[in-house]
Design a protein around this nucleic acid. Structure first.
Length: 266
DNA sequence: AACATGGTCAACCGCAGTCGC
DNA sequence: TGCGACTGCGGTTGACCATGT
């Protein structure tokens, strides 16, 4: 028997997020954090599944996200990391603070791939195209092993299995920069890192969190995302009913007075 | 000016891994 | 130990926008 779908599909909205939905989600997460994503949409008053909320948050709404094109340096790093890690975008993203796996994946597929091909390099093997089948050494020298990780995680037994090469599977700990994939990455640095360039088409209509920070209540340090994530959910849940169905939380109650200007988010 | 084509990127889908009971 | 629930990840899709004809 198959697993239940991640959410009851009935009545749930799909497709692009509206500014209003973004606002609800951001407001809720910044206020309460999330205990389990499944509950977030219910508590936040969204007709979305938790998965969709998580994706929207991690790929677009997180305050510590950089926006705009990858710099030359970042691009080089991506190529380098791809040569070592293969299509493990989340691992690669962990090395680029403020960038998401989705963003890097898209950039790879649309820009870097072409660029490499133009340069005569096979984007998969990172070898010169004409020598793709030969035993010629890889372009990126730091590869001790052939790209055994090739396409995705399925090739390795599992990350936690203390992989064959301990040296290789602990990228996480040796990551020079904030390797935490989630908001934990860089509270202090996030403020500086946030650069809501708003170059994305969608960003014109949705929140640009970095800019909004100042408008949020001072009771919440918006960059303490991971702290927020540890907030008292039990209390929230109990105060809002436990079946989640009849939850009726006024999201903006948590913003004292007019300290939070909803319009700022738009 | 209208249409066609290509590029970009946000969002979805489904599978795999992890955790708790 | 097995099972189910939940989360995370990578691949893919489709809508939107820009450019070319």
């Amino acid at each position: 028997m198959g697993r239940q779908p991640c959410c009851e599909k009935v009545g749930l909205k799909k497709g692009p997020w509206t500014a209003e939905e973004d606002q609800k989600l951001v407001t809720f997460l910044l206020t309460h954090g999330h205990c389990c994503w499944r509950l977030v949409p219910k508590l936040a008053g969204l007709l979305r599944c938790g998965k969709s909320c998580r994706l929207r948050w991690t790929n677009y709404l997180r305050p510590d996200l950089k926006r705009g094109l990858l710099s030359e340096q970042e691009e080089e790093l991506v190529i380098d990391l791809h040569a070592q890690l293969g299509n493990r975008w989340s691992k690669i993203a962990a090395r680029l603070p403020g960038r998401t796996d989705n963003e890097i994946k898209n950039h790879w597929n649309t820009h870097i791939k072409k660029k490499l091909k133009k340069m005569g390099i096979d984007p998969v093997t990172h070898r010169p195209l004409h020598a793709a089948q030969s035993d010629e050494p890889l372009i990126h020298q730091q590869q001790q092993d052939p790209p055994q990780v090739r396409q995705g995680r399925c090739d390795e037994p599992k990350a936690s299995s203390q992989g064959p090469a301990g040296a290789n599977d602990d990228e996480d700990e040796e990551a020079p920069v904030s390797a935490q994939p989630q908001g934990a990455a860089s509270h202090a640095s996030t403020a500086a890192a946030v650069s809501p360039s708003g170059s994305s088409p969608a960003s014109a209509s949705v929140a640009t969190p970095g800019a909004d920070v100042a408008a949020c209540p001072d009771t919440i340090d918006l960059f303490e995302v991971d702290v927020i994530m540890d907030m008292d959910w039990a209390g929230i849940l109990s105060s809002s009913g436990d079946d989640g169905a009849g939850i009726n939380v006024d999201l903006f109650d948590h913003y004292p007075g007019d300290g939070f200007d909803q319009q700022v988010w738009m």
